[in-house]
Structure formats: C-alpha cells, structure tokens
Design a protein around this nucleic acid. Structure first.
Lengths: 285, 285
DNA sequence: AACAGTTCTGTAATTAAATTACATTATCTG
DNA sequence: CAGATAATGTAATTTAATTACAGAACTGTT
C-alpha cells in the first residue's frame, strides 16, 4: 500500500506527537521529501527521534527510507483523478481536467471490466453470421465506430442510429446473428425494445451498458461499464470514451482469435486507402 | 524530465567511471534506491565521490536526492505505457494493454496539445454563425460525436461523412462560418480539398489533425494531436480517442465561455430525454 | 615523443544526518 | 494518588555523504 494512504488510514493509531508529524507531512508532502529529519521535527514541533519512530511505525526502515516511499507515493499516488470543471477555469485548467478525468474513467473502467464477459463476447462475435450495432444519441457515434472496425473483418456488419431501421433490422434478425446495443444509461426505452425484439428472434444480444439497467436485463450478454461521469456538463464524455475503448478491445480480440493469416486482410484494407491519400514523401503532390 | 530517461539520454556525456555507475543503476534501479553510496560504488567498482559526481551531473543535489528522483521515476515511469498486443495474448492481456495504451496516448496528447490553439478554437467556435464537422472513415464517428455535442448549443451544426455533401457544404460556406476537419493522418486528399474550398469561401477552417500534414496546411487553425498509434492492428484506436477528448474539451470551453445562464439550456436538453427513458426508480415500468 | 594543460578519479578528512541508548515526562489504571 | 506503562526528548553514537586535495590519465601542441 501507498505510504500516503497509509498515513491517512492509520491516523488513529498515532500518538499525539506522531499525529503532529503526520499533519505536517500531509500538509506538504512534496516539501517533506526534500527536508531533513531535523527540519521536519522542527516544523512539527517534536523531537527528531519522534519523527524516526513515526517512520518505523509505517513499516519503513527509517527516515530516508520513508522519504523514498513517500516520493514513490507522490509519483503514482494521485495520477489521474476525476476533477470537475469549474466555472472560472481557464483553458489550461479545463483541458487538463478533461484529459485527467477521462484517463481516470478509463482506469476505473479497466479495473471493473469483466474479462470473462469480454472473452465470451469475442466468442460470440467471431461466430456471428452478421453483426449489428445499434446506438442512439451519443452512443450512435460509438456504434458507427464499431461498424468502421468490424466491417474490416469480412463479416456482414450493419449499424443503425435510427429507431425505425433498428426495429426493422431487429425483427429480421435470426439465430446466429449478433446484435450489439450500446447505451450508457441502459434506460433508453426504444433500445430496450429493440434488444427484446432481437432476442425473441433468437439473435444473440450483447449490451454495452450499465450493469443492472433495463437494457442489461434484455441482453444475452452484458458488458457493463460503470464509469464516473461529470454530470455538471450535461454531456456524456468519459462514458463514451470507455465504450469506444471497449469496442477496440472487442475488435482486437476478434482479430487475435482469427489468427495471423487474417491479419493480412486487415493490412490489405488499410493499404487500399493509399490511393486516396497524399504520400508521406511528397506531401503536397 | 524523468531521471531514468535522463541517464539513458545522457549516456554519452558520461565519463568512463560514470558510465559504470550508470550501467549498475540501469541494470537494477529498484535495488539502487535502497542501497548506500558505498555499496553502489563497490558494485560499480568506482569510488564513492564518483558516484556523487554522477548524481550531480544529473542535476540532483547529491546521492540521497538522486535516490529520491530515481524512486519517483520508478514509480511513475511505467504507469501507462504503450504496449503492443501480441499474437499469443489472452483476454486479460490484450484488455489491459489496450486500456493502458489508450491512457498513455491520452497522456502524451495532454502534454503535447497546444492550449493557446484550443483557446483560439473556442473563440472561433463561440462566434460561429454555423459549425460544420467533416470527417471520413474512422474520423466520421468523431465528427458525429462533435455534432451530438455542439447541436446542444443552439448554433446551427451540421456533420457530413459523405464527400459529396461535404463538398457542397464547403462551397456554400461563407465568412463567419466554421468548418472543422477531422483526420488523424491529415493526408486524405478529399478532405484537404474540402478544407481548401471552405477557406476560399472565407470560412474559418479548424483542423483536428497531425501537425505539418497536408491538411494542416489548408487550415486557418490547427489543433494537432500527435499520438502514438499501434499500427500492428491496422486500425485507428488511440488517435480516435484523443480526437474525441479534444472535442469534449472544445465543447466544454464553449459552454464555459457562454457563462452559467447558458448551462441551464444544456440541462433542458438533457431533461428533454427523460420521456424516452425508463425512470431510475421503477426501472422496469 | 615530451610537455603543459585539462579532465578524471581516488584517498582521506570533514561534515552532516540519522539512529540509538537512556533519562524524563506524561498518561493510564487500580 | 501511587505504580506502571507508554510517550517523548536529550545527548551520544554511529552511519552515511560530501568536500578538499592529490595523484593519475588523457588531450593537444610543439
């Protein structure tokens, strides 16, 4: 465990003087790692051995060792945290915050994601006779992206962001086909209906949605993504990025399952773009 | 800069003995931070002052300070690194790798992004009479997403992923209108044409693309995103996520610029969805 | 090739820092 | 309120790191 957290957690086990030490350290950890035991003792208004004892209590070998641990805690202790954008934030502030919040969201998504569910989803997708991606609103662009990835795998892929088309497509689905429904909240009625219809027609329904949502209940297989979202902005941000990464993961799993020979196909798809692009060498033709 | 990288980079500036020290440290950095100057000197077969001089050359105050820096390097040195997916990776492996690579990409994007360019882009966008988002292929879904965000701001927003529509739209553009062209490589000929056409018609063209690309040259304002991409997969992954986050940042900048009263509008947009959703309380109505 | 100048490296002395041992004070318990 | 125990501080000790200096190795010049 991180020393900094350790200090916070075991604040009750400290004696009066040790607590003073803890306070000084927590108030300014960055300074602590560059100060001597003498100066820290003075700041905390305790004796030097007290500081030393404090370090020992935290299972470090002594003060220098403690500083080492503290330095490491500071380095990776609070790397990416979800920070809310404030009214008075300038461009640097909100840019940094959004990047960091997104990274924090991906980090929690990574920790919470159910790997075996991903594996099963990849299973299902590789065996699919046809894959459909459905999303509405913000999730529509994720569905779009998924189509852009999966169409490369020479499997029939469709993507609809229109309820009527989705509905028609769902009604016509059958056994062996896979329908992927994407919704952050999992509460969009229309999409739940579509999942239900697809399932009634024996299609396998994969839901990329919140665990325990109405949509999740309609799915054969749920890939849940519970990600902290800054609702102050009234726009889905982090959740969508997490969905996108999940799509990347599914696509990657797909290609790995198909083996190396298959990868050559992907290269061909990519190479086919060459004609539409400026060459790297003579940039402005 | 990270001390560990610093050692690697400045290996040529070292003297013979200093190099010995560097070798020992690089061979086992984790041990180094727990050893004394004496033991390290012995391992490297040099004198203690040599080790000290080595530390000073790396702009640290001395050996203990050096260890502190080293400890921090080791702690945050490999938080999220770009790791390539391998043929034999199982689901845990590739899932972790993709998450981490994406986070690493966001981290570099954050460091490289030009904040003043973002600020100018927000300026331009808030004053736009109309905003158009154009992207092709994988970037089309990013354009889609941008539309989904910006249409909330009661500004006319369009989004086309079709060259013909883009072209017609660009030709009809005029002063005061903003065209946002999205392309990871910035080498898609069609999109470069469209940027040029829009500019000829006095529209402001913002490019979300690679710095120094043909597309960048056609733009009024470039938001460059140079992100490491795992080309083994032959699919754009990290780059797209970075683009998406950039859109989030622009949208956020937009709402902040408009002030708090404007934010109420966003809430209304969000609330308008309520009718189409299952209530949180009685989930299955 | 020999010399002067420079840079590099090690030895020994010095200084600074951290730790230990012990004494003192505070706190708790019966 | 005494006795015991835990907590804290003082001073001594030890350990580690740094400095000062001297000798060695290398560089370029005549």
């Amino acid at each position: 465990m991180n020393v900094l957290e350790k200090i916070i957690n075991s604040v009750n086990n400290f004696s009066k003087s040790e607590r003073k030490v803890a306070d000084v350290i927590l108030a300014n950890p960055q300074t602590t790692i560059h100060s001597s035991i003498a100066s820290l003792a003075k700041l905390a208004d305790v004796s030097e051995p007290t500081v030393n004892r404090f370090c020992r209590r935290l299972d470090t070998k002594g003060f220098p060792d403690f500083k080492l641990h503290l330095a490491q805690s500071l380095a990776n202790g609070t790397p990416y945290v979800n920070r809310h954008v404030e009214e008075e934030d300038g461009p640097e502030a909100y840019t940094a915050k959004i990047f960091e919040s997104t990274m924090a969201a991906l980090d929690t998504a990574r920790q919470r994601v159910d790997i075996s569910a991903i594996n099963r989803a990849v299973d299902v997708l590789t065996q699919a006779k046809k894959i459909s991606f459905f999303g509405l609103g913000a999730s529509a662009s994720v569905a779009h992206d998924a189509q852009n990835k999966f169409f490369r795998f020479n499997v029939p892929v469709v993507c609809f962001d229109d309820i009527v088309m989705q509905r028609m497509s769902a009604i016509n689905s059958c056994d062996g086909e896979v329908v992927v429904c994407i919704s952050h909240t999992g509460r969009t009625k229309n999409l739940c209906d579509i999942a239900a219809i697809a399932r009634e027609n024996d299609a396998t329904v994969i839901g990329i949605t919140a665990y325990d949502s109405p949509l999740a209940k309609e799915c054969t297989l749920v890939l849940s993504l519970d990600v902290p979202e800054d609702t102050d902005m009234y726009m889905p941000m982090a959740s969508r990025v997490a969905q996108l990464v999940l799509i990347d993961i599914l696509a990657t799993g797909f290609t790995l399952r198909r083996g190396s020979k298959f990868r050559e196909n992907l290269k061909k798809v990519k190479d086919s773009l060459r004609g539409s692009r400026f060459d790297k060498k003579d940039q402005i033709s």
